[in-house]
């Protein structure tokens, strides 16, 4: 049998020991996982960000402009110094500012306007029929938004509409819960597949 599969199988079982209770085998596997995950990401980022974006343009193409992001990036390490830690705010400010600038049009158009316009659907169809779904969507949207409107006390008509909003929210949470269960079970089935077919060769 492939040595890699044996190790993967043992580690899988080591993680599952947690189902009994927290124990040294699980903690050792968990610690190894944390270390390996960090190491993996470190290597991939080293290659994709540092080699591709800094060293390669600098050494091969003498592109001196890349010194700017390099210096900005190095400023991040000032966080380890009490005296100069404020310098790390410069790259953070650049990233946050640029991110905010790019996000405004995207949030405005894709997340807000498009969603609002998609909610306004004709209630009467071309054939003269009543579009019940359109009514459900608009009532659901407005009542849920009312529930999240905290500038006024939820009393009277606002209270009633907000309560209706909670029912819509419960439908959403219920559906999400159902799908989440589906998802988690699928992941578990994937591990069972590995254990039974690759590791133990019980099934083909």
């Amino acid at each position: 049998m492939d040595i890699g599969v044996i190790i993967a199988g043992i580690l899988t079982l080591a993680i599952y020991t947690f189902l009994y209770k927290d124990n040294p085998i699980y903690r050792a596997a968990e610690s190894l996982l944390i270390g390996l995950a960090m190491g993996y990401v470190l290597v991939i980022y080293w290659q994709t960000a540092f080699m591709d974006r800094i060293f390669s343009p600098l050494l091969n193409e003498s592109d001196w402009w890349v010194l700017i992001p390099l210096i900005l990036g190095l400023l991040m390490f000032s966080r380890f110094s009490r005296k100069y830690s404020w310098l790390s705010r410069i790259p953070i400010a650049l990233m946050i500012g640029a991110g905010a600038g790019v996000a405004i049009p995207a949030m405005l158009y894709a997340r807000t306007l498009k969603q609002i316009s998609a909610s306004v659907m004709p209630l009467i169809t071309e054939s003269g029929g009543f579009n019940f779904e359109a009514l459900v969507v608009i009532v659901g949207l407005l009542s849920t938004l009312t529930y999240f409107y905290f500038s006024r006390e939820h009393k009277g008509i606002i209270g009633k509409v907000a309560k209706l909003g909670t029912y819509f929210l419960m439908l959403f949470f219920g559906a999400t819960f159902g799908y989440t269960v589906m998802s988690r079970m699928s992941t578990f089935i994937g591990r069972i597949d590995f254990l039974l077919s690759d590791f133990l060769h019980i099934i083909k």
């Binding site: 498009k114 969603q115 969507v137 799908y179 989440t180 589906m182 998802s183 699928s186």
Partner: peptide, 24 residues
């Protein structure tokens, strides 16, 4: 993943997302 399906429903409904193949 199935867990994320309901999060994408508004994008499907608005036509911003073409379609979804969700979960196992």
């Amino acid at each position: 993943t199935a867990a994320m399906i309901t999060s994408y429903d508004p994008y499907l409904s608005s036509g911003q997302l073409f379609s979804v193949v969700g979960g196992l």
